[in-house]
Design a protein around this nucleic acid. Structure first.
Length: 331
DNA sequence: TAGGCCATCTGGTCCT
DNA sequence: AGGACCAGATGGCCTA
């Protein structure tokens, strides 16, 4: 990143004060290298060159009649060695940057499949890893028990060990608050296609409810880029021709999963898409709940949008979000 | 202003 | 020898 070199003037000043003694302390080395491109500008290094030349002269003298020093012989930093060292360091730095960028890309891909994802409100690295751990754990529970935990406990599972702001973010994204949920089953389901849109059963927004921290639900939906679960089943997916960095993730951002239960089936075994999951959730503002300006109370009815196992992601998004948004999903 | 987060540089270690 | 990986150090940016 160019961030480090955002202040060329300061960098030039740094460079002008370094490298008087060849390989100096770590701090000196670092400052020099931090100068990056500037270190390679001859004009900035003139005085260092002269210092190095002196060293070379000293080395020549040593070969003469001067008494030899005791102890391990320190290799002098000749101009050539210095240049080799610098070139090596520059290359190593570039590799390290690339490596870290690959790591960050991978982390970003991980963020995208978390239950709450926002380009604008990115989870920190450590919180992403913690949430991922919890998410895996929660999904494993679902697989093992065959039952999806009730909404509140699912959020609790997800938020275990997370910081308060992140917990609030997750709860906000899932439209569940840190307060106990009051479940009611008398609310009417909104008509499919008219009502609120959900890309993820957790990230439902009722009409009149506060927007998710990342903005409107539609804005959130714009992040979605299926092909459905392709990366999970296609071994060839993920090969990257150029370098070892993680390939860009193009799968679904968050696998649909029901808060209220597993994929519900009608009596004939066909997927029941009509069921809704009504509840009233209260979550008053808590200390840090305003991490993303999401501190209000809400009440709502959450439709039970679940993707049946035998349904393609495209059909699912079409069904849930209507033709318009499913076009966005599947473009 | 302190603290959290991040990008980058660096030297050490291990491996090929 | 050179690359990958790692952890420590450092400084910048942002926010409460």
């Amino acid at each position: 990143m160019t961030k480090t070199f955002a202040k060329p003037k300061e960098m030039a000043e740094l460079v002008s004060t370094q490298w008087v003694e060849g390989l100096g302390s770590k701090a000196e080395l670092k400052d020099e290298d931090r100068a990056g491109p500037f270190a390679l500008v001859p004009a900035l290094n003139e005085e260092h060159d002269s210092a190095e030349e002196e060293e070379e002269e000293e080395e020549e003298e040593e070969d003469g009649e001067k008494p030899k020093r005791r102890g391990p012989k320190k290799k002098k930093m000749t101009k050539a060695r210095l240049e080799r060292f610098r070139a090596r360091r520059v290359k190593a730095n570039a590799r390290e940057r690339t490596r870290m960028h690959g790591l960050n890309d991978a982390l970003d891909n991980l963020r995208r499949v978390m239950p709450c994802y926002s380009k604008t409100q990115k989870l920190s690295k450590i919180e992403t890893l913690r949430l991922a751990r919890n998410y895996i754990w929660a999904l494993s529970e679902v697989l093992e028990t065959g039952q999806t935990p009730e909404g509140k406990s699912f959020v609790e599972m997800l938020c275990k060990g997370l910081s308060q702001p992140t917990s609030n973010l997750v709860a906000g994204c899932l439209q569940l608050g840190p307060q106990p949920l009051l479940l009611e089953k008398h609310q009417e389901k909104p008509p499919l296609g008219e009502g609120p849109i959900s890309s993820h059963p957790f990230s439902y927004q009722s009409p009149g409810l506060p927007s998710p921290p990342y903005g409107t639900m539609e804005a959130h939906l714009l992040h979605l880029k299926p092909p459905a679960f392709k990366s999970l089943v296609d071994p060839s997916f993920g090969s990257h021709p150029q370098n070892c960095s993680t390939p860009p993730y193009e799968g679904p951002l968050t696998p649909p999963l029901s808060v209220s239960g597993n994929f519900s089936l009608k009596q004939d075994g066909s997927p029941d898409l009509e069921k809704s999951y009504p509840f009233v959730a209260h979550y008053p503002s808590v200390g840090l709940a305003g991490a993303h300006g999401h501190t209000s109370h809400f009440q709502g009815t959450v439709p039970r949008y679940e993707m049946p196992l035998d349904m393609s992601y495209e059909s699912y998004t079409h069904h849930v979000a209507g033709p318009g948004l499913s076009t966005i999903f599947n473009e």
